[in-house]
Every structure is written in structure tokens, then in C-alpha cells.
Computed example of a mutant assay.
Amino acid sequence: MGVTETDKSVILNHESGSSAEIYLYGASVVSWKSAGKERLFVSSKAALDGSKAIRGGIPICFPIFGPPPSSPPEYASLSQHGFARNQIWKFEKTVMDRPEGVSVRFTAPAPPAEFQHKYKLAYVVTLSEHQLSTDVHIVNEETDREFKFQALLHGYLAIPDSSKIRISNIPRGTTYVDKILGGKVTQSDGEDIVIDKPIDRVYHSVSSKEIHVDDGFGGGYKVRFRGFEDCTIWNPTEETGKAIADMEDKGWEKYICIEPGYAREFKSLAAGEEFIGQQVYTVL
């Protein structure tokens, strides 16, 4: 067990043999091993030198998800998915190092000068034998105005073959935006989702707060969340995946993105208010 700090990352080791590695760049989780297997996908073409966001693992999207909105101006000028995944975070402390789990806390630096908002953004990563928990903590440090943001954990779960998986536990009637169909608003039929064509959907207010992935080979994942209300499901398949510059050949066959977040609209915090969004991966 224990926590090891290097010049670029923090490594967690649990007595069960499970481990995790979190880069200071973006506070991106780039590895999670449980039962002797790597559970996160990172493209072999991913930039790990801080030159661009890491393709894979669990990047943090904040203070926006997706393309920037048309207003307000300080949000409109942001790059896709915001700036948190491109900042150098600080390893603040070890929260826990016990048989129950190993937990560490990171804090984000100040925002770019043009983003005139006062907030505190922290990230807690907790490792146990068969689980990985990632918690986003956001405090509005303004004294007299609200702070609006979006936040999402863009996780790439490793799987043997994306064409064999089944995604379930999204309640029938859950509204989603289908980006493949130009933003068409649709309701879930409650049936299992299979990856036989590109998928890019933002499910709104997922009442189950839990999504299951059957990997088709006797394993899979449970993705549970709280605080976060929405969940994006994404896999470009070969049709669009081959156009992603930092995606390895056939990389789209090796992952599914299940992404809890607050992505449908902006979350508003009153002065001094705190938001906590938690995601828990469990190996099945």
C-alpha cells in the first residue's frame, strides 16, 4: 500500500495489488489496474508531455463541456471542454492510506487571467480492491455573485472489443441529445445499447445514477454517480475514430466512454456554496 509522488504523477498502490496513476497535468487518471488488468484506455498516440490534453484515462472537463457557448464572453472564448485538463495541478495531501482504500487530493491552479471568477477546484481520487472513485469539489469563492459552470469526467473504460459490449440501466423515457443526429432530442427506449455505429449521446437527468457495461467476455463495469445528473456515452467507431489525430489505429475498439457530469446546462452556485460530483467505477 501507499502513495508515491514523482515529478509528473502520483501513484496509488493498494494491498490487494490494485493501483492507479494520476498525472499532475490535468489531474488526469492515466492508469487504473485491478485484478491484474488495466481498466483504463490511453491511446498509444496520446501526448503525455503537457502539449495537449491526454487522449484517454479520465480527463476533467471544466468549466464547460464540449464547444464553448456563445455567451458570456469569458466562456465563449474558452477552448473545447475548458481548461482544467490542460492545467498543472498540485498534489495537496494523502487523505487516507488504509486497507479500506488509498485516497489523495489535488487542487487546481487559478484560472486563466481572462476568466474572471473566484472558485476552488479540487479532485479526490480513491482506490480500493475493485473500485476507483473520483470526486470533483467546486467552491464558489465569490462574496457577492453566483458562479456557473459545467463539469464532466471524460472516462475511457478499457474493454476487449467495443462491438461486443452491452450498456444498460438507463431508464426508459430518459431524454438524450444525439450529437450524431445533429442534436436531435430523443427518449431512451430502455433497451440495451450496442456499439454498431458511432454513438455520441448526452443523457439528461439519469434517474438510476448508475450505468452498467457488460463487456461481452464475462466482465464489465458499474458506473455510479451522485451530484452529477447527466451522462455522456461516446464511441466514434472507425467511421469517425480514424480522423482523430491522437487516436491509435483501431483504438475505438478498445474503449467505451461513460461520462457522468453536469453537462446539459450550467450549474449555478451561490456565493460560498459547494458542489460535489462523484463517480465510482466498480469492476464486475
Rank of each mutant, 00 (worst) to 15 (best):
T143S: 14
E146P: 04
K148G: 11
F149C: 00
F149P: 03
Q150F: 10
A151F: 11
L152A: 05
L153T: 03
H154Q: 05
G155K: 07
G155R: 07
Y156T: 00
Y156H: 06
L157W: 10
L157C: 10
I159A: 06
I159H: 00
S162L: 01
S168C: 10
N169I: 05
I170V: 10
R172M: 13
R172W: 11
R172H: 13
G173P: 03
G173L: 05
T174P: 11
T175M: 12
T175S: 13
Y176V: 01
Y176I: 03
Y176S: 03
D178I: 04
D178Q: 06
K179T: 05
I180K: 05
L181G: 13
G182M: 11
G182F: 11
G183E: 04
G183A: 08
K184R: 14
K184A: 14
K184I: 05
V185T: 13
S188P: 13
E191K: 15
E191T: 14
D192Y: 10
V194E: 12
I195H: 00
D196M: 04
D196F: 02
D196L: 09
D196T: 09
K197A: 09
K197F: 05
V202Y: 01
V202G: 01
Y203A: 02
V206K: 03
V206C: 05
S207C: 10
S208G: 10
K209I: 03
I211Y: 06
I211Q: 07
H212W: 14
V213Y: 00
V213G: 00
D215R: 09
D215E: 09
F217V: 15
G220E: 13
G220D: 10
G227W: 06
G227L: 02
F228G: 04
E229Q: 14
E229S: 12
D230R: 05
T232D: 04
I233G: 03
I233N: 01
W234G: 02
N235G: 04
N235T: 01
